[in-house]
């Protein structure tokens, strides 16, 4: 297996899943869950680049999702920008912020890095939560429509909002996967992945460790931001929770659950963590108990994450 076939196989698998899953959907509600999975999967893919490739941890990436989300809420109202431009603006602001704070933060390692990114995420959350005059505070604010549905209506095509967002987020997810997979076995991707195993060895072959870490941080911030923008535009509403600590934890868990360095794993992780609460509403009160248990069990017994662990098992059982 070389890099090209893994790339093609992953893209094909994703495309097939996105195209065929609706066959199984009994109602429009499932389109919404599907869209949420794709959106979370996108943010998790960004963390694949940061955590899986470059070996850095972040407990604050929901902060960048928050920036992307509120860019779409504030941009049209205060700057008169069309929603799509706001997505780009949010991504640019997130990328710039990641670039500015990344260098000092990424000097830290392991647990210290986790705390610093956690602090960064919480600070972003607090600004959104406290500056009520701008953001509506804890009550949140409405987000203008993307305008695609009324455009389609003009052509006589009628889709529900959930259906439309299913397809939009599916295409964006594919684009995100394409980019992350391109990176994997590219010159820049190899430089990133070399940090994962040994920063010292990486530096002795000429890799500017700080610069490459920063690159991964910025890329993952942009992914998280675009994901946040999509959530805001889909829900037509946004609250500070999108930037909250628990959301950061969810994103990191999705990434690692599926297999930190696996693009497909990010989608698998996102599926489990997004669909689970929907399924568990039956158990209601036990949702957290089960979520916590799953997080612990997977990390203890399938340390590499679901996709790599299963792939290994299949390879072993193959003749």
């Amino acid at each position: 297996m070389n890099g090209i076939s893994v790339r093609t196989a992953t893209l094909l698998a994703l495309a097939v899943i996105i195209l065929l899953a609706p066959v199984l959907f009994p109602s429009s509600f499932y389109y919404r869950v599907g869209a949420l999975i794709f959106i979370n999967g996108l943010a998790a893919m960004g963390l694949v680049v940061l955590v899986g490739y470059a070996g850095q941890v972040s407990l604050g990436h929901a902060g960048f999702s928050g920036i992307g989300a509120y860019a779409c809420a504030l941009g049209p109202v205060h700057l008169g920008l069309p929603p799509l431009v706001c997505v780009a603006l949010g991504a640019a602001v997130s990328g710039l912020l990641a670039f500015l704070v990344g260098r000092p933060i990424l000097r830290l390692k392991a647990h210290y890095l986790a705390v610093a990114t956690l602090g960064l995420g919480i600070l972003i959350y607090m600004v959104i939560n406290n500056e009520g005059w701008l953001t509506g505070g804890p009550d949140g604010m409405t987000v203008p429509s993307l305008g695609v549905r009324s455009l389609l209506k003009g052509y006589g095509i009628k889709v529900t909002s959930s259906e439309m967002w299913y397809w939009i987020s599916g295409v964006v997810l594919l684009a995100g996967a394409f980019v992350a997979l391109n990176l994997h076995n590219s010159p820049a991707g190899r430089a990133l992945r070399s940090l994962h195993d040994s920063e010292v060895a990486a530096s002795t072959i000429g890799i500017d460790v700080a610069r490459m870490k920063l690159t991964a941080f910025v890329i993952s911030a942009v992914y998280a931001s675009v994901a946040g923008s999509q959530v805001a535009l889909m829900n037509r509403f946004v609250t500070p929770d999108v930037a909250g600590f628990m959301h950061s934890v969810e994103l990191l868990t999705m990434t690692v659950l599926g297999g930190a360095a696996s693009v497909l794993g990010a989608v698998v992780g996102a599926t489990i963590l997004t669909a689970l609460p929907q399924v568990l509403t039956v158990f209601e009160d036990f949702e957290h108990v089960l979520l916590g248990l799953i997080m612990m069990l997977v990390m203890i017994f399938l340390r590499e994450g679901l996709v790599p662990s299963l792939a290994r098992r299949m390879r072993r059982s193959a003749p």
């Binding site: 430089a191 992945r193 890799i207």
Partner: peptide, 25 residues
């Protein structure tokens, strides 16, 4: 040894070409 364990043998050596390849993200 400080080999990049998560790469193939070939990719390990290719990583050493970083300076020639340059950074074009």
């Amino acid at each position: 040894l400080m080999v990049f364990q998560q790469m193939t043998v070939l990719q390990n050596v290719m990583a050493g070409r970083h300076l020639t390849e340059g950074v074009h993200v």
